[in-house]
Design a protein around this nucleic acid. Structure first.
Lengths: 125, 125
DNA sequence: CAGAATCCTTTCTGATACTG
DNA sequence: CAGTATCAGAAAGGATTCTG
């Protein structure tokens, strides 16, 4: 997932497999999600919003996403440097899927918390 | 993602991050997808349908998914052994998200193939 | 048939330092 | 500010062999 693979496979590929080639890996979906929530964002803003990501993985994932046309990178020639990231139209077209995923995640979190309350497992906060 | 982590984090977790804890990694979405397309499936049937997966990853991913309540495993005490996997209700509730992902993947494949046709890159078939 | 075990490779992390 | 470089260690994933 280092931005070097070919996306071909022509016809017989599964659309889900194909989608995961574009947005698979640990950080791409989180990146797309925070971008969808916040619009245009700068590098360090992204880094702050995505808890746990390292410079290396953020840089690499941004590069991959840009190479696949899902995000747009605009660099302003200033001192100090400013670089802004945002979703392209192709990236935007993923939003319904991300929204469904978020909805599902919310639902699952509720289920889990309910179970924990009943089992007395985790009442922290 | 080896089935040992805690899913807690109580409140302040992002629903997308939470969702990815349940279905993140390389093989879980493909597994859920083929199960959603084929209903109940046996181990080797899954293996055949998911190109590239190894025994280890299939076994591990199935265990994780079962532990998180997304799939159901039914083992028949026969010789030769028979084990059937299917989606639970929680697994089913992910279907809208998977369908959106598949739709998006199809869309992106078209875009890519168009670009390739224009550039003369990949006219295979 | 449905895996478990073992060993090996790749990817990711964490910390720290450096650059234009 | 927005990265890049390096390197040790951990984790995820892969390949192969073996078993009830």
């Amino acid at each position: 997932m280092s931005g070097k693979e070919q996306l071909s496979e022509g016809i017989n590929a599964c659309p889900v497999t194909y989608a995961l080639k574009l947005i698979g890996g640990k950080w791409k979906i989180p990146i797309l999600w925070v971008l969808s929530q916040n619009g245009t964002m700068r590098y360090n803003e992204l880094k702050r919003r995505i808890s746990g990501i390292t410079n290396m993985m953020l840089t690499q994932s941004l590069k991959d996403l840009e190479a696949n046309g899902l995000i747009k990178r605009v660099q302003y020639m200033e001192i100090p440097p400013r670089v802004e990231y945002s979703l392209t139209d192709a990236g935007m077209s993923l939003l319904p899927a991300l929204a469904e995923l978020a909805r599902w995640g919310t639902e699952q979190m509720k289920q889990y918390n309910n179970k924990c309350d009943i089992a007395g497992g985790n009442t922290s906060q």
